[in-house]
């Protein structure tokens, strides 16, 4: 089992503190980085993949400092950017073949691996089509195929569901489920439904700090008895910024009953996400960031 460990990681852009001594651990399985835009998700991933330098802190893979591992670490790593770049004149097959060469794959395995990943993302029929003719969703699927090519030990996805239709999102989840036993998968998103049913470890971020880091069930237990359905007539009684909406319901997080007609409900990952943004002290008081 692989462990990617972040200890006291800080990143400063000029005077702006993007990450503030964060510590968390990603193990084999699906790890989700959840937080709003600007929370520091992409900065963490960029630091982990060596795209940007850290200001301070430590990142280790199985106990080894990743910054001293060089090609050994890069071989184990694959990163799908938010907007994946391609060579438009290449076919899907060419692009994956080129990626395979850069990843140092054996020539004998390349063709079968390309076929495998293309079939996983439903692009087998478009294998020899030029990428310039692909739709946004097809490009996104090709990006996923490129990322999972050669089954790297550490897979990082930045907003992987952008541009995917509901069916393709489910397909993406299936692919992740297939790979979760072999790889540390880190998915960064602000869309809870992308990871709600598949994630094994959840890191909730807010303004460059880890608000909570644990298994989703454990975190849900921490806010058990704090998630309330607020009936419509009671909504004006609460401060506007304390309310969030899920499906047809208005909800709030509170240790005490917020309004007379509010009803307790079972916490979901969506509630965890909003709890992390609206009332992060709940996690801190219950030791949520001390994993």
């Amino acid at each position: 089992m692989g462990v990617l460990k972040i200890e006291n990681l800080s990143k400063q852009y000029g005077k702006k503190q993007a990450l503030n001594k964060i510590s968390c651990e990603f193990t084999t399985g699906i790890n989700a980085l959840l937080g709003p835009n600007g929370a520091g998700k992409t900065t963490i991933m960029n630091c982990v993949s060596g795209v940007i330098p850290k200001t301070s802190g430590k990142i280790t893979y199985n106990g080894k400092d990743v910054f001293s591992m060089g090609a050994e670490y890069r071989t184990k790593l694959s990163f799908q950017f938010q907007s994946q770049p391609f060579y438009p004149s290449y076919t899907a097959h060419d692009f994956l073949e080129f990626s395979a060469l850069l990843k140092g794959m054996d020539k004998s395995k390349t063709e079968s691996e390309i076929n495998r990943v293309l079939s996983l993302v439903n692009l087998s029929e478009n294998k020899y089509e030029k990428i310039r003719s692909f739709s946004g969703g097809m490009k996104q699927r090709l990006a996923i195929a490129q990322t999972i090519l050669n089954s790297p030990k550490i897979l990082i996805f930045d907003e992987p569901s952008a541009g995917l239709d509901p069916f393709e999102r489910e397909q993406f989840k299936r692919i992740m489920m297939k790979m979760k036993d072999q790889s540390i998968i880190i998915i960064s998103t602000h869309i809870v439904s992308d990871i709600d049913t598949i994630c094994d470890n959840l890191v909730i971020l807010n303004k460059g700090s880890v608000v909570a880091n644990d298994e989703p069930e454990v975190l849900c237990n921490k806010i058990q008895g704090m998630v309330w359905n607020v009936p419509k007539e009671d909504v004006p009684l609460l401060p506007y910024e304390k309310i969030y909406f899920e499906d047809t319901k208005s909800k709030t997080i509170s240790i005490t009953k917020p309004t007379e007609h509010s009803v307790l409900c079972e916490p979901t990952l969506n509630d965890l996400y909003f709890c992390g943004q609206l009332n992060k002290d709940i996690f801190i008081s219950s030791g949520g960031d001390d994993k």
């Binding site: 060596g50 990163f79 950017f81």
Partner: peptide, 18 residues
């Protein structure tokens, strides 16, 4: 600019060899 360099540099080859 298209970040292909970044993308391909996270591989065994690395940016320089690419």
């Amino acid at each position: 600019q298209s970040r292909r360099l970044m993308q391909f540099s996270i591989s065994k080859f690395g940016a320089v060899k690419f």
